[in-house]
Design a protein around this nucleic acid. Structure first.
Lengths: 344, 344
DNA sequence: ATTGGCGCTCACGCCCAAGGAGTGCTGGGC
DNA sequence: GCCCAGCACTCCTTGGGCGTGAGCGCCAAT
């Protein structure tokens, strides 16, 4: 019993690997007979049972009841993805196809289609955290709708457009609006709103009083527009999860899961976690600390703009998922999204 | 048997009414004993059974199996909502509360919150068809991102903002961009893109060749932006339907239903139907011709801007819903949305 | 026309038995 | 010391049988 000291000998690893693979493939608890057939090792079921008992003791597998086969525990999956899994990267042709799907000309749509891409390819739920904004702007424009309603159009540093209606006390003439916009555009483009606020205060005492009021409103609106849409989670293909019998057996669990999807902030927290590390990360079962995700895994990867991580893409599916397929898909999607966003 | 001639005598109507109400209230097939208790008529179960048999012959009710009570058929519901139902309008206080929820400052968000409102209040799925755009624009702006990438910002006649990146062959200077925008804004604001296209072609032969190319691109993009986001369906609270046991018993049906939700165009067609009539409309069960909606009802009402119908709000829920509550909610939401959109 | 009574039909819940899958253990062979 | 055939055991699953209760249709009496 020397090898029970944490480490798994080669045979145990191989058996664990094929067990997980079998289970992922057909969702049934795997018995000793099946393992003896598929492991490639020329061992009788009886011998295999011994190893399985060890694996169970160590918490890698468990049996739903006495006379069923074994299924992987979270720990089993964890070991599997960490050291047993062999991922086959996608080939060039597939990548090119994917690249074609991401040719879209504005950030929101790009993010949305990345999310769709993930859900379509994996048949699970795709998630994308929208890119963090730097908080500056590239261009500002005021447009008069009615006397006291002014449309603020704001092009962010990232090149997408925010808009917002400002209610004013005073009436501004079109030329005043143009002038205000010019001042902001010429002097402060690229700065953060905080910075602008300070500098406007300091430098522009001479500007007419009511003009600077307009600017204050603009800054507040800009601030809000930026912070409001700061980081959001775009989910698609939740419906796919309805088809997964692992999840849709427990109606209550399923509802909890979908409730989680509506709670963007919780999800955001989880996903943001991933944007601190490089490369693909995997949360298995309850590892994330969220009960509704008990029987789910989350596969994530950060994406970047100009070499800086700005968001996360990911897939949420059942713990019993084909990791060797999902992982490269998430990986590639993150990379494609990075390059699609960078080249603008 | 004279009254079997289509018409329902008063007693039959009253019994049908209480039967439907009972069934809506607790979801169990209603038997003759229950009806005799709750109808208010002083009749024995046996007499009531006779009437029920008539109602069944006429197709208003049916029994799931021999020894269960009766449940309303689609036809029964139809008769119920058409002539038996007594809706109680919401009181002022509630309306004011709702009005508070719809104070948002841009069309997309307004539509989204209307949809949320519907789903929150009814605990079913809320749908809103986004307002039809007239196809003109109020203001156009070109903004240079890189040499050959130009950001087109388009304020529609309705006052919301579209944006889109144009890839150009040639390089335009900032002043050229300003000039092009000016031409469009000064001469063509308010016209449809089709009209502009014709007039630009006719009137602007003298404009430099490469300038008019830019405009063509702008028009094409504008056209596309308008037509693309022309009409869309915003759905919220689909998750609520997971909790409805009428629907979530059949996993397959449920999946079909959610698939329908992803098929915006089909849904759009159904909802657009409603925007041809005034006031609240109801589709019960398969009446809409869509199989996934077999056990659903759709309650819709058109909303307007400046007196013209531009879209539809609605609720999708199980056939067995509290119509007397849902109908006024949909009605009011349509009216609130109308006024919120008109006052801008 | 209304009603009490009667027999009938099903769905539902329960129990029980048979069948099957898979385990753990043991004892013998290499 | 490792491997493995055999065996007893456990426990899920399936299906049949039975009692119960709800509700109906019909009928004869009022």
């Amino acid at each position: 019993m020397a090898q029970e000291f944490h480490a798994l000998n080669e045979r145990a690893q191989l058996l664990l690997k094929t067990l997980v693979e079998r289970y992922i493939a057909d969702g049934q608890p795997v018995g000793s007979r099946a393992l003896s057939k598929y492991s490639g090792l020329d061992l009788s079921p009886a011998s295999i049972r011994n190893v399985m008992a060890d694996l169970e003791d160590m918490g890698f597998i468990a049996s739903p009841h006495t006379s069923a086969g074994r299924i992987p525990t979270s720990r089993g999956y964890r070991f599997f993805v960490d050291t047993l899994l062999t991922v086959k990267p996608l080939d060039r042709i597939e990548i090119n196809q994917l690249e074609g799907q991401l040719q879209v000309n504005n950030t929101q749509k790009l993010v949305a289609s990345a999310s769709h891409l993930l859900s379509d390819l994996t048949r699970f739920a795709g998630v994308v955290v929208t890119p963090r904004r730097s908080g500056g702007f590239r261009h500002i424009e005021f447009l008069r709708l009615t006397e006291k309603r002014i449309l603020l159009i704001l092009v962010t540093a990232e090149g997408d457009v925010q808009n917002r209606i400002i209610q004013t006390d005073k009436i501004y003439s079109p030329s005043e609006l143009v002038e205000a916009a010019n001042i902001l555009n010429q002097n402060y483009a690229g700065c953060s709103f905080d910075e602008i606020r300070r500098r406007v205060h300091a430098e522009l005492k001479q500007v007419q009083e009511h003009m600077s009021q307009l600017m204050a409103a603009a800054l507040a609106a800009g601030d809000q527009a930026v912070s409001e849409s700061a980081e959001d989670v775009v989910i698609s293909g939740e419906i796919n999860l309805l088809g997964i019998d692992d999840l849709s057996s427990n109606m209550t669990k399923l509802r909890d899961l979908f409730n989680l999807f509506e709670h963007r902030s919780t999800l955001l927290q989880l996903l943001d976690h991933s944007s601190r590390a490089q490369g693909v990360q995997i949360f298995i079962g309850g590892e994330a600390g969220l009960t509704p995700l008990d029987e789910c895994s989350v596969v994530t990867a950060p994406y970047e703009v100009d070499g800086k991580i700005v968001g996360t893409v990911g897939v949420i599916g059942p713990t019993r998922m084909a990791y060797e397929r999902v992982i490269p898909i998430v990986d590639i999607t993150a990379k494609l999204l990075s390059s699609a966003l960078t080249q603008r």
